[in-house]
Amino acid sequence: MTKTLSMMERSPRRREVLLGAAAGAAALVVAPAVLTGTAQAAVTADAAAYPAKAFAQTTEAAALKIMYGGAPTHSAAVKMNAPDIAENGAVVPVTVDTSMANVTSVALLAIDNPFTMAAAYKIPAGTNPGISSRLKLAKTTKVVSVVQSGGKLYSASKPVKVTLGGCG
């Protein structure tokens, strides 16, 4: 249980990434400029708070019932961004966001993964419900984003195709 802090200086990789027109517009990719780990902090993450049972479920309904005690209704106000085809199923960028007010929780589920619940977040007042992260998808699956707002559950979903990589 060693804890090593990572101290980084200004990244040398702040530069424009040029892409050919075949892939659409050129993009600006900016590496994080300053990464400073200056001190060790108290560990506030509490293992006892982990909803282990919800994460052990193999269906969306069971996972959400245990996590939130209910089922979501589809809502266009839940926005999610996930690729149509994952370039690698081990690292699939998924972003969820919503314009809804009073959001207290956001969850991501991968329906055809061995365990359905992938991640869940508690959103305190003042925190934006938009969260970007990267998920592992075991195979082609529907990814569901769930937002809890005013005690009610809303969802959006998107199928993500996971193909076998061809290159060794």
Binding site: A23, V29, P93
Partner: peptide, 21 residues
């Protein structure tokens, strides 16, 4: 990434905080 917009989009997201950091 010059040849697949979808892969390029995922790469751009991954490069926000590159895994080689």
């Amino acid at each position: 990434y010059n040849f697949s917009k979808s892969e390029a989009d995922q790469w751009k997201q991954i490069m926000e905080f590159p895994p080689y950091q």
